[in-house]
């Protein structure tokens, strides 16, 4: 009846969890290259990175900060949309691109400021606060666009600098991907190597200890939600420059995948904490699965099933983790 020592067992499960994420990659690659020869081509993989990965990665790292702080941001799509709307409006008004970019970031960050007031100021839970923002944001956009009409940029009147964001190339790498890489690096630095990131993680783990340690909890939380919206606003900039149109409430398309990628990513951390490398791997996995299924000629709707299965597996692993940990 002697119990096996809990420590090695929890280590094994955790080790397995991390191994599982890597194994999932190998499996997905193997399966898709077998059934869809086009999958492994350089052109396809680059297209996955530019069209699927880059934007979702930016939104997901934004989400990672919210989840790291113990919350969630359901209104990342709203920040994307507000940034996009501001950008398109300023460009149409003939403003220079740098000003339009600043305007877009400011437009997106309005959403974060609003969330910060609800969460830090009033004390509404992040889930409900950002859900409210999502609804308010959707209505606001319908009001601004006569019931949700897209705002197109005329193909002729678009400055070159604008196109560059969506379609340009730096050192052979498409600009959206460059922006994603820069943000990933920056986010990693912030979350793992700064004072701010440490406090964010500590807040997510045990907020009251942060407060009892003499840290201004509400200011950190407020800053977190503003940061989330600014990062999401960058995604809004890129998506608008790529498609040269603002479609009201279109940013919400990223929401669920961003949450999924963030939680898939937590399995990479030995303690199950949200982390940028994990989130990036999660985004990569979701992007590859989406692309591979498309190339395999499978029904589009199977993508959702696959995403769901991936998240189920992560939850299962996470549950095994907690069980092992609680026995310790």
């Amino acid at each position: 009846m002697a119990q096996s020592s809990p420590k090695p067992s929890s280590f094994n499960v955790r080790g397995l969890a991390r191994y599982a994420l890597v194994a999932a990659f190998v499996a997905v690659f193997a399966v898709f290259s077998a059934i869809a020869p086009a999958f492994l081509s350089g052109a396809n993989l680059l297209s996955v990175l530019v069209n699927n990965f880059a934007l979702l990665a930016i939104v997901a790292i934004a989400m990672t900060f919210a989840v790291a702080a113990g919350g969630i941001d359901l209104s990342v799509g709203t920040a994307i949309d507000f940034a996009s709307f501001a950008f398109v409006s300023l460009v149409l008004a003939g403003q220079p691109i740098p000003l339009a970019i600043l305007g877009a970031l400011a437009g997106g960050s309005l959403v974060g400021v609003f969330n910060a007031i609800l969460i830090s100021g009033i004390g509404i839970s992040p889930f409900l606060a950002t859900l409210g923002t999502l609804f308010v944001g959707r209505s606001a956009q319908q009001l601004l666009t006569n019931g949700g009409n897209p705002v197109y940029l005329p193909p002729s009147g678009v400055p070159e600098a604008f196109r560059f964001l969506g379609h340009g190339v730096i050192a052979g790498i498409p600009v959206p991907l460059v922006v994603a890489f820069v943000l990933i690096a920056g986010a990693y630095l912030i979350l793992s190597h700064t004072r701010f990131g440490r406090v964010v993680l500590a807040t997510g783990i045990q907020a009251s200890v942060v407060r009892y340690s003499g840290l201004a909890l509400s200011r950190y939380t407020a800053a977190t939600y503003v940061l989330v919206s600014v990062i999401a606003a960058v995604a809004g900039l890129i998506v608008t420059s790529t498609v040269t149109v603002y479609i009201p409430s279109s940013g919400n398309a990223f929401l669920l995948n961003a949450i999924g990628a963030t939680f898939i990513g937590t399995t990479l951390d030995p303690h199950g904490r949200p982390n940028i490398p994990g989130t990036v791997l999660g985004v990569l996995l979701l992007s590859i699965v989406a692309n591979g299924l498309l190339l395999s000629g499978l029904n589009f709707y199977w993508q959702q099933v696959a995403t769901g299965l991936l998240i189920f597996s992560v939850l299962a692993i996470g549950f095994a983790n907690r069980k092992a940990a609680s026995r310790a």
Binding site: R198, V199, L201, A202, I205, Q206, S208, V209, V210, R211, Y212, S213, L215, H271
Partner: peptide, 16 residues
């Protein structure tokens, strides 16, 4: 609840 964060490491708690 208030004194230590159980899921932070000894180091992370010490310097918080």
């Amino acid at each position: 609840r208030d004194g230590v964060a159980l899921d932070l490491s000894v180091t992370e708690n010490t310097t918080l």
